[in-house]
Amino acid sequence: MKITRILLVMAAGTVLASCASIFSKSKILLTNDNVNEPVNITTDKAHYENVFLPAKVKIKKGYGTSSIMVTSRNYQPLNLIVDKKFNAAYIANVFFPIGFIIDAATGAIMKPAKKAYYLNLRPKNENNQNIIIYNEVPAPQIADSGRDGAVSRDNPGQTELEQTIIRWNIDSEPQGARIYWRVVSNVPAEVKNTNELYLGPTPYEETRPFNILGLTYENSHNVQIEIKLTRRGYMDQIKRFNVRQAIDQQEISTFFELVPEETE
Rank of each mutant, 00 (worst) to 15 (best):
M110E: 04
M110D: 05
M110Y: 13
M110Q: 15
K111S: 12
P112E: 03
K114Y: 10
K114F: 05
K115W: 09
K115C: 04
K115G: 13
Y118S: 03
Y118G: 10
Y118C: 07
L119M: 14
L119S: 14
N120D: 06
N120E: 12
N120A: 15
L121T: 10
L121K: 07
R122V: 01
R122A: 02
P123E: 03
P123D: 02
P123A: 05
K124L: 04
E126G: 03
E126C: 04
N127Y: 04
N127P: 07
I131S: 12
I131Q: 11
I131H: 02
I131N: 08
I131T: 09
I132N: 07
Y134H: 12
N135A: 13
N135H: 08
N135M: 01
N135Y: 05
N135W: 05
V137S: 15
A139G: 05
A139M: 14
A139K: 00
A139H: 10
P140F: 08
P140R: 02
A143S: 09
S145M: 11
G146P: 06
G146W: 03
G146M: 08
G146S: 15
R147Y: 06
R147E: 10
R147G: 01
G149F: 02
A150D: 02
V151C: 13
S152G: 12
R153D: 04
N155R: 00
P156Y: 08
P156D: 09
G157E: 03
Q158D: 02
Q158T: 12
Q158K: 14
E160F: 14
L161E: 05
E162D: 13
E162Q: 11
E162I: 03
E162S: 11
Q163L: 10
Q163I: 02
Q163W: 03
